[in-house]
């Protein structure tokens, strides 16, 4: 087994991507770069899906897409597998580990023993790295943890075969082969591709629930909840937004800061000062997301619960939508090369 270096990141899939690619010798990769190359920034108010009767919102692209796109843009070949048979999934994992490979696994957090109980919901799009095994004890590097941990064979099987929405089905993935040399030109081209993809996802998907229009869609709902479901329930819904927005591994405001950090690095790599200005705009958007969370907290703490307080929360969301729209339009106007 080769030396393994644990890296903690803000978001699990970014972290798995960074760690797996560094194992392949891609020393330059870091979390903001992975997030930007993989076009992780997104917004979707998922239609028809309710969580506890309330809204389901995601601030990032589909689970798995950051890893997939980052590898693709850097010309890294990827192996990925899902299983219907638990034994086959275990055997495959053992085989990879015994061959000295480090692999990413999608897991559910409900049965993840090293997570605090308060965080263990039936959320199935968490990612971690398995970097070795000692008999039936698997060495785990979970990107949101400060240190490495371990799971027994039974524990690992349970989280890899968690059930419910986005069930992982033993999903395992890893880079198979990286190009011998990744040039700065390749990275820069990837950055530009990543930015274009994000602009397209956030501005031009013809749907009312995604991107900028998605944020406004949620704002509209926020205005109505108090009348529709009453103060208490509406407060719980807002709390749910804040948890999906800011909680570990999901980070809505947080994602905006990561994207701003990506643009900061992009500005240096491409030698383009305008990107720095747009990075600043995303920082402001991130700050606004946090303001919005504070306003919502005022409501679910029961401090301010009038209709005008719900309206104010919605107003901040509209302000965010406008701020992000402007930043994205500015991005799309740049002549990057």
């Amino acid at each position: 087994m080769s030396e393994y270096n644990h890296i903690q990141t803000a978001h699990c899939e970014n972290g798995v991507t960074v760690s797996l690619l560094r194992q392949q010798g891609l020393e330059f990769i870091n979390e903001p770069l992975a997030f930007g190359l993989g076009s992780g920034l997104f917004y979707i108010h998922i239609p028809f899906l309710k969580v506890n009767g309330g809204p389901a919102i995601s601030f990032r692209s589909m689970p798995g897409s950051i890893f997939k796109r980052t590898c693709k843009t850097l010309n890294v070949k990827v192996e990925r597998k899902k299983f219907s048979n638990k034994q086959a999934a275990e055997d495959f994992l053992d085989k990879q580990l015994d061959a000295g490979r480090t692999v990413g696994c999608q897991v559910g957090v409900f049965h993840l023993p090293y997570f605090p109980k308060e965080y263990r919901f039936h959320f199935n799009a968490h990612n971690l790295i398995v970097f070795g095994r000692e008999g039936d004890n698997f060495l785990v590097s979970d990107p949101v943890m400060e240190t490495t941990t371990s799971l027994t064979r039974a524990e690992l099987e349970k989280v890899r075969f968690a059930k419910g929405a986005l069930a992982p089905k033993g999903h395992i993935y890893f880079p198979k082969e990286a190009a011998p040399i990744i040039t700065n030109e390749m990275i820069n081209a990837g950055i530009i591709r990543g930015i274009k993809h994000t602009v397209r996802d956030m501005l031009y998907i013809p749907s009312n629930v995604t991107g900028i229009r998605g944020i406004k869609h949620t704002a509209k709902k926020v205005r109505k909840w108090r009348d529709q479901v009453g103060e208490r329930q509406a407060g719980l819904f807002l709390g749910q937004i804040v948890r999906m927005q800011e909680e570990i591994g999901t980070g809505g405001g947080g994602f905006r800061f990561i994207y701003a950090a990506f643009l900061e690095e992009a500005s240096e790599r491409l030698g383009n000062d305008k990107l720095m200005g747009i990075s600043e705009q995303f920082t402001k958007a991130g700050d606004l997301w946090r303001d919005s969370a504070l306003q919502m907290a005022g409501i679910y703490k029961g401090r301010i619960t009038a209709q005008k307080d719900f309206d104010h929360a919605a107003d901040i969301m509209v302000e965010i939508a406008e701020a992000e729209k402007k930043a994205l339009l500015d991005l799309s106007k740049l002549k990057l090369r």
Binding site: A10, E31, P32, N52, E118, Y119, E146, G235, L236, G239, Q240, V242, R243, E246, E247, F257, A260, A261, E264, A293, L294, A297, Y300, K301
Partner: peptide, 22 residues
């Protein structure tokens, strides 16, 4: 930009507590 570790944010703590109360 740089990274920093945080022990938590009260705004989130209360949201999580409320979810558990429910």
């Amino acid at each position: 930009y740089e990274t920093e570790l945080s022990t938590g944010w009260e705004t989130k703590t209360v949201a999580l507590e409320n979810a558990w109360d429910e």
